[in-house]
């Protein structure tokens, strides 16, 4: 037992080194004074200066945030509806097709989703005159479509594991189905809705492939800007940008994790106190 544990813990160590060495190396090289991205030329913060004076990056970041906020909010509304529909309405016409439509975007290769959306928007523009050009609207529509199904998955699995007796109690007390949904079900699944929204937001902020196909001239999101630079090779200012993004996201996720951990521990303590009070 002892020896196998040593092996497993060593593998864990190697695994985490594998996860974090590339990121740490990128962070270290963002402070590289040399213009050559991979040759060390002394400590310097000049690439951060270059970055801050680059107005293009600020604009792209702002556009990405706008698209992510809008698309993740609409995706959360639609995705939550779909999750509720699949978890609570076991019989309606076309349910099989519906559940297929909800899983298919999860496993569809991004290239195919991207190209089919692009062809769709081009043909729409050709025959209906709308959208006249590709840009903010088409990117947002595409993002809503492929991120809403992630929300659905989260909401649906939360609904299936939720305790239905509270809903039944509300029903017995004379609440209408819609009131039960609004006043009982929605508050119960609100953590799932929130994590669905966060996931949809992250997916939208991070997407390259689908955005690349559905965007048009003048609509450059941050990932598209990075993508067009990175295709040409490693540059020190991208190292600096990557460092800022990784550190920001990392700190947010860590803070959220610590907060959730603490809330969980508090809930655990409350539960124990409640048990003791009952004894």
């Amino acid at each position: 037992m002892k020896r196998s544990n040593t092996f497993l813990l060593t593998m864990l160590g190697f695994g985490f080194a594998f996860f974090y060495v590339p990121i740490l190396s990128m962070i270290v090289y963002s402070f590289n004074g040399s213009r050559l991205a991979t040759v060390w030329g002394g400590f310097s913060t000049k690439w951060y200066g270059t970055l801050l004076s680059n107005a293009q990056i600020g604009k792209a970041l702002w556009l990405s945030l706008e698209i992510a906020l809008l698309s993740s909010t609409i995706a959360t509304i639609l995705g939550t509806m779909a999750g509720i529909a699949l978890a609570r309405f076991t019989k309606f016409r076309g349910r099989t097709l519906f559940s297929g439509l909800v899983t298919a975007p999860l496993i569809m290769p991004e290239v195919i989703t991207g190209i089919s959306s692009l062809i769709f928007f081009i043909l729409l523009g050709q025959y209906l005159g709308w959208p006249a050009a590709r840009g903010f609207t088409t990117v947002t529509l595409a993002h809503i479509t492929f991120s809403m199904v992630f929300v659905t998955t989260i909401v649906q699995s939360r609904m299936l594991s939720a305790d239905r007796s509270i809903e039944e109690a509300a029903m017995d007390l004379g609440a209408r189905p819609w009131q039960v949904l609004r006043d009982v079900t929605l508050p119960v699944i609100s953590p799932a809705i929130l994590s669905g929204w966060l996931l949809a937001f992250t997916i939208s902020m991070d997407d390259v492939v689908i955005t690349n196909f559905t965007t048009g001239p003048g609509t450059t999101t941050l990932p598209i800007l990075i993508w067009s630079k990175v295709k040409l090779g490693v540059t020190p200012d991208i190292n600096a940008l990557a460092t800022l993004i990784v550190l920001t996201v990392g700190l947010c996720v860590l803070a959220a994790g610590v907060m959730m951990n603490r809330a969980e521990r508090r809930a655990e303590r409350d539960r124990r106190l409640a048990y003791r009070a009952n004894e």
Binding site: P22, M26, A37, T202, V230, A242, I245
Partner: peptide
């Protein structure tokens, strides 16, 4: 949670 593109990019540097 951090950018997919940047994780690929980190390896380009390595």
């Amino acid at each position: 949670w951090t950018s997919f593109l940047l994780r690929v990019y980190a390896w380009m540097g390595l």
